[in-house]
């Protein structure tokens, strides 16, 4: 009767096309985010996340168009992040069909925007995306620019502040673990879980089914991964089987 652990594939979308390659059989167009979203819905994904990496604002219109087509054809929740800075950005994504919106650099630049968005649309639409690395002295710090630049914020404090301002959920992405396939940064998950009472999505480092189990046992409510799903190294079903076998509810 309790909530299922959510398993969430993340797609990087650039000017309306999926980037970082996806290796799926039976797709007419493996670069089409809508086709892939469909495939993941059929595999049993509990939600989907699009990370919009479109550099030019002129190409942004294609993002809204893709979000709209996805919302019309896929009947599980869709979160869209990337380049969100203002209430107007959120409004446009929600109107296009996103259920939730991720905010990252925009919130670091102007934290009050978190409260502005939550007041207008409710905390449940807003996912704070935190890119975290371990600093030289061992503390967790928030970064920007793909983990290259320190934002001058202590990670746990930032998550606490964002939740207090109105973020309804936190996507915790370990920049150190990202791409290693050695497992999630469990210490980071535990540290944030101790202080924050909104749902936590663990991201970065997944390589094997047991990694997802470890993240949940460290305190994550949901688990997110990209390449291991896209390259079919793991299926959503395998991850759910591992979670179920460890005694965690899955859908």
């Amino acid at each position: 009767m309790t909530s299922a652990v959510r398993v969430i594939p993340c797609l990087d979308v650039d000017a309306g096309r999926v980037v970082k390659g996806v290796n799926f059989a039976n797709l007419r167009d493996a670069g089409d985010p809508v086709e892939l979203a469909h495939g993941y819905e059929n595999q049993g994904a509990d939600e989907l996340t699009f990370l919009d990496v479109t550099a030019s604002s002129a190409a942004r219109d294609t993002t809204y168009e893709v979000v709209g087509r996805t919302a019309e054809q896929v009947f599980i929740p869709l979160t869209v992040g990337g380049g969100v800075r203002t209430v107007a950005d959120v409004d446009r994504l929600l109107r296009s069909g996103a259920d939730k919106v991720g905010i990252n650099t925009g919130a670091i630049a102007r934290p009050e925007v978190i409260a502005e968005i939550a007041d207008r649309f409710g905390a449940q639409v807003l996912v704070l995306s935190a890119d975290v690395r371990r600093a030289a002295d061992g503390h967790f710090e928030i970064t920007t620019h793909g983990g290259r630049t320190a934002a001058g914020l202590e990670a746990v404090e930032w998550c606490v502040r964002a939740a207090a301002l109105g973020a309804g959920e936190i996507l915790l992405n370990s920049m150190d673990a990202d791409g290693t396939k050695d497992g999630f940064d469990l210490e980071l998950i535990r540290a944030v879980r101790r202080e924050v009472s909104v749902p936590l999505i663990a991201s970065g480092g997944a390589g094997a089914p047991e990694h997802f189990v470890q993240a949940v046992e460290a305190g994550a409510d949901a688990v997110l991964a990209a390449s291991v799903f896209h390259f079919r190294e793991l299926t959503i079903g395998q991850v759910k089987d591992a979670l179920r076998a460890a005694g965690h509810p899955v859908r």
Partner: peptide, 8 residues
Amino acid sequence: VVPHMGWS
């Protein structure tokens, strides 16, 4: 943990 966000 609130919001209750997910499948039940």
